[in-house]
C-alpha cells in the first residue's frame, strides 16, 4: 500500500496549501497595492481616486531614484562581495592544504543565521567613532588622521552598510557553491593539475565553467535579495545622513508609515516590484549575451 504512487488529486491537494499561502501572502498584497496606488490615501477610510498621479509623482521623485541608485550600487557590491568572495573561499577550502573543512563550512555559514538587525548593531559598534574597533585599529597602526565618524560620511555610508551584508551572506553562497563544486569529478581537476594549470587557472578555466549555472542562480538570489535590502540599514543609519543611505524599501516604508501616505507608499511598492523584476531579468540576459558571443 505504502509504495503505491499517490493519486494525482492527493498530490495536488498537498501542493495547493503552499500555493494558497503564497497567493495570500504575496500575490493578493501585490494586487491590493496596485489598487491602492491609484488613490490619494493618507490613512483612514477616505480615499480619493487620482488615477496615475502617484506614478507621475514617482517618476519625478528624486529621493526614490536616488534610492534606486543606492540599491543598484548595493547589488553591485554584493554580487562581487558575496558571490565573488564565496567562490574564492570555496576554491581555498577545496584545496588539500586546508584541514578541518567541516568547521570552516559551519563557521562560514554562521553569520547568515544571525538576524540582520543584530548584525546591524554589531557593525555599528565596529564603526563607532569613539569605542569602535575600526578607529582603534587605525590609531594602533599610526593612521590616526584617517579616523572619522564613519556612518556620518555621505560618500562612504552606502559602502559601509554593504560590508555587513557581504560579511553576513558569504557563508550562504559558499555553501551553495561548495555543493556544486563537490559534484565535479575529481579526475578533471587532477588532470588539469597534471597538465600544469595553477590554482587560479584551474578555478577560472575548469571549475567556473562547470558551476556556471549555480553561479547564475547565486547572482539572481543576490540581486533580488539586495533590491529589497532594509533591516540592517534601518538599524545602522535609518537612511541617513540625510538620504545618503536611503534604499527603495525603506523609502516606501517611510512614506507609508512615517508620513502616513499609504496611496503613494503603495505606488512605491509597485515601483520596487517593477524595477526589481527588470533588474533581475536584465541580469539573466547577461549570460545569454555571452553565450551568443561564444557561439
Amino acid at each position: 500500500m505504502l509504495s503505491k504512487k499517490p493519486k494525482a488529486t492527493t498530490t495536488f491537494g498537498y501542493l495547493i496549501v503552499p500555493v494558497a499561502l503564497y497567493t495570500f501572502a504575496v500575490f493578493i498584497p501585490l494586487l491590493v497595492a496596485v489598487y491602492y496606488s491609484f488613490f490619494e490615501w493618507k490613512g483612514g477610510p477616505n480615499k480619493t481616486f487620482i488615477g496615475l498621479e502617484n506614478y507621475a509623482t514617482l517618476l519625478h521623485d528624486t529621493v526614490f531614484w536616488q534610492s534606486f541608485g543606492h540599491n543598484l550600487y548595493l547589488v553591485l557590491l554584493c554580487v562581487i562581495g558575496q558571490v565573488g568572495i564565496a567562490f574564492i573561499f570555496v576554491m581555498v577550502i577545496s584545496t588539500r592544504f586546508v584541514k578541518l573543512k567541516g568547521i570552516h563550512r559551519t563557521l562560514g555559514f554562521f553569520p547568515s543565521t544571525i538576524s540582520a538587525v543584530a548584525i546591524g548593531y554589531i557593525w555599528m559598534m565596529i564603526y563607532d567613532s569613539r569605542r569602535g574597533i575600526l578607529n582603534w585599529f587605525l590609531e594602533a597602526i599610526g593612521q590616526g588622521d584617517k579616523t572619522q565618524v564613519w556612518l556620518n560620511n555621505p560618500k562612504l555610508v552606502m559602502t559601509l552598510v554593504a560590508i555587513p551584508l557581504i560579511w553576513q551572506y558569504i557563508g550562504y553562497y559558499m555553501l551553495i557553491l561548495l555543493s556544486a563544486t563537490s559534484a565535479i569529478d575529481k579526475e578533471i581537476i587532477e588532470s588539469a593539475e597534471l597538465d600544469g594549470a595553477n590554482a587560479v587557472q584551474r578555478a577560472i578555466h575548469v571549475v567556473l565553467p562547470m558551476v556556471k549555472s549555480t553561479v547564475a542562480v547565486c547572482i539572481v538570489l543576490c540581486v533580488s535579495g539586495n533590491m529589497k535590502a532594509f533591516d540592517n540599514i534601518f538599524v545602522m543609519t535609518e537612511g541617513g545622513p540625510g538620504n545618503a543611505s536611503m534604499v527603495m524599501a525603506m523609502y516606501g516604508y517611510k512614506i507609508s508609515f512615517a508620513q502616513q501616505n499609504m496611496g503613494y507608499g503603495s505606488a512605491i511598492s509597485v515601483g520596487i516590484f517593477v524595477l526589481g523584476m527588470l533588474v533581475v531579468g536584465g541580469m539573466q540576459l547577461i549570460p545569454k549575451l555571452f553565450a551568443k558571443k561564444e557561439a
Binding site: 555621505p154 545622513p241 540625510g242 538620504n243 517611510k254 502616513q260
Partner: peptide, 16 residues
C-alpha cells in the same frame, strides 16, 4: 508627520 519627516531628513544633511 509628512512635513516633519522631510524637515528632519533635510536638516540632518544641513548639519553635515
Amino acid at each position: 508627520s509628512a512635513v516633519w519627516d522631510v524637515v528632519n531628513t533635510e536638516m540632518q544633511s544641513m548639519l553635515n
